[in-house]
Simulated assay, not measured.
Amino acid sequence: MARKKQIIVPIVILAAGVLAFVGFSAMKKPPEEKAEVDNTPIVAVEQITVESMQLTVKSHGIVMPKYETRLVSQISGEIVELSEAFVRGGFVKKGQLLARIDPSDYEAALLDAQANHASSLASLETERAKSKVAETEWKRITHSAPTELSLRKPQLAQELAHVKSAKATILRAQRNLERTEIRAPYDAMIESRHVGLGSFVTVGSDIGKVLGTAIAEVRLPVADNQLKFLIDQGQQAQVQLSGTFSGTQRFWSAHVARNEGVVDNKSRMGYLVAEIKDPYGLNESKTELRFGSYVNAAIFGIEVAQASVIPNYLISDGRIALLNDESKLHFAEVEIIRQDGANSIISNGLSTGDRMITSALDYPINGMALALPKDEEQTPEQSVVDTQIASIQE
């Protein structure tokens, strides 16, 4: 009996183990099949636009008057009159009286000169009469030719010289009398005044300074390598000036009047001079452009028929990465005509509608397969259809 137990018990344990193994094996789930992973690089693209473009050259400068004049006294005397407009910042018209020097002494000098001139004329007429009498008497006395002295010609010439001298004295007195009035040489703004009512001035005394308001100038520094982008090196080029006026960005039109024709020995820059008519808007309604203002300038230059602007970081060795119609990488050789800050201007090698890759690729290879993000995979036509369906459903 004990021997049977020894045989049956191992068999039962072995059978139970087999059954347990089978049961656990049935409970185990088979491994799930994993979906294939698409390792195609996903890139972002941007459509290129090619169009005509007018190149500009950037510069800057300070607005200054084309004409400025320091007024000085040409005679001596006391300031007896000052115009109300003769103050710093005042606007005056050409010929407008600014100040008057006491004219009394100069009026008296003119009267004295006129009196001397009249006396000289009288002496001249007397001498002419004496000359005629001498000529008549000489003919009666002798039939020989008279001398110049006998006809009183030297005396007549002397009196004629006295008349001319007296006339010159009148002109000088008249000019000095005119100089008692300090007038504006042109339409101007007063920059400074250095005299007051009752001040005594002498010849050469500083009266003040005026700035012409008809035309303003801006000297624009331009590097030599930028002149090639301007027509005729900028002669008569149109210029757009920009600056801040009353806290607001403003713009003014100007044109290049001349090229100074020299290179600054310190900055190594050439200078174009732009002119602005009526900067203070005195003759027409416009935003004033004050002297001394700092302005930026865009000088309009040559036109490029087919051009596009591309960021510099997307250009490598003169090539740009594009995504072609087969969603593959394609490198396009481009011609760079100008670098402008962070961008380059391309004149050849691209077409409107080309898809430029703007995202970085670790190992770009010409012809490699690429993919777009799902939201960009739809064509423009599909997007329009989806939009129309959505609007109908709403």
Rank of each mutant, 00 (worst) to 15 (best):
A2R: 11
I8E: 04
L19C: 12
F21Y: 13
K29N: 10
E33Y: 02
A35G: 09
V37T: 14
D38T: 06
A44D: 15
V45I: 15
T49D: 15
T49S: 13
T49M: 11
L55N: 02
K66G: 04
T69A: 11
R70P: 06
V72S: 11
Q74W: 00
Q74T: 12
I75D: 06
V80M: 03
E84P: 05
A85T: 10
G90R: 04
G90K: 03
S104H: 08
E107P: 04
Q114H: 00
N116Y: 02
A118R: 11
L124C: 06
E125A: 13
K139M: 07
Q155E: 15
Q158W: 00
I170M: 12
I170C: 09
A173K: 07
R183G: 06
A184D: 05
A184M: 06
P185Q: 10
R193W: 01
D206M: 06
I207F: 01
G208Q: 08
A216G: 15
A223W: 00
Q226L: 07
K228G: 04
V239H: 05
F251H: 14
R268F: 04
G270A: 09
V273P: 04
E275C: 05
Y280M: 12
T287Q: 14
R290S: 14
S293L: 13
A298M: 12
A298N: 14
G301F: 00
I310F: 03
N312V: 11
Y313V: 11
G318C: 05
R319L: 09
L322F: 01
H330R: 13
V334D: 12
I337E: 14
A342D: 15
L350P: 06
G353F: 01
M356Q: 05
T358I: 15
T358N: 05
Y363K: 12
P364V: 08
G367S: 09
G367N: 13
D375V: 08
P380A: 12
D386K: 09
T387Y: 06
